[in-house]
Amino acid sequence: MSVDFRDTITIGAPATVAGEIMKAVQEWPSWTASVSRVERPGTGPLAVGETVVVEQPKLRPATWTVTKVDAHGFEWASASVPGVRNVGGHWAIDNGDGTCTAELTLSFAGPLARVITLFYSKLIRAYIRMEAEGLRTAAEARAQER
């Protein structure tokens, strides 16, 4: 059984622009208050198999491993909390009119998933919303620069 969180937001920028911003994970603290620090040992494009440590306010650092990546986003997984496996998705879907819809997902699976989400669901929803709003602002600003 899993517990899933999802947020979508329409962005006035192409999906490739939103995808670039999402995949530049080391830059997240500059556009979302939900992430305080990112440690990415790799350089260049985000790649499958790469591990990234993400620190967020009020939470323990989490190590994420990239499992999928393409021009419009990526997915990664973490097992930083014993008894819980997380999968986070960050995707931009092209709307065909120069805009895109970003879809941010976070699922919790494992024997302690229900307990963890019971205590943290309000914070999880707030952080996903912060990320969506910050992404929209960053992507629209970058699209204006081009």
Rank of each mutant, 00 (worst) to 15 (best):
S107Y: 08
D7G: 03
T67M: 00
N86T: 12
S36R: 03
A71N: 14
L135K: 02
Y127L: 08
V53H: 03
V17C: 09
W31Q: 01
V52H: 00
P111Q: 00
T8P: 01
P61D: 04
A62C: 06
S80W: 07
E133W: 05
M22R: 00
I9A: 03
G12S: 14
T63P: 05
T63D: 04
D94P: 04
T117H: 12
A24D: 15
M22G: 03
W28Y: 02
S80K: 01
R40L: 12
E131F: 08
S2W: 06
A109K: 14
T67P: 01
D94R: 00
S80I: 08
R85K: 11
N95E: 06
S34Y: 08
S80N: 06
L104S: 06
L123E: 02
R136G: 07
R129I: 09
E55S: 15
Q26T: 11
G73F: 11
G89S: 15
I93T: 10
E75T: 15
G49F: 13
V115S: 14
Y127G: 07
A102R: 01
N95D: 11
T137S: 13
G12M: 08
G73W: 06
V25Q: 05
K58R: 12
A126L: 10
T137Y: 11
Q26C: 05
P41L: 01
E140R: 09
N86S: 13
R40I: 12
W64R: 00
A79T: 13
E75M: 14
D7I: 13
A143L: 04
A47L: 08
G134K: 02
T105A: 09
S30M: 11
E103V: 15
D4G: 12
Q26G: 13
N95A: 08
Y127W: 06
P111M: 02
V48L: 09
M130R: 05
R125V: 12
A139N: 12
W31R: 00
V38D: 05
E55T: 14
K23W: 04
F74W: 13
E39D: 13
P41R: 04
G83H: 03
F5M: 07
G49Q: 09
V54E: 01
R136E: 04
D70H: 09
P14I: 01
G12H: 14
T63V: 10
R6C: 11
T67L: 04
P111T: 03
T51F: 02
A24V: 01
S121H: 14
S2H: 08
V115E: 07
G83T: 02
F119E: 02
T137C: 07
W64V: 03
V48C: 07
T63M: 06
V48A: 06
E145R: 08
G19D: 13
R60S: 15
V53K: 11
K23T: 11
P29M: 08
G98M: 04
V84A: 01
I9F: 01
S30A: 15
P41F: 00
T117Y: 12
L118W: 07
S121Q: 13
E39M: 07
A15M: 09
Y120A: 15
R125T: 14
A33I: 06
G42Q: 10
A13V: 11
A143F: 06
R142M: 15
Q144V: 12
G98H: 06
E55Y: 07
S78I: 09
A113D: 12
E140C: 10
T105S: 13
G19Q: 11
V48W: 13
M1L: 11
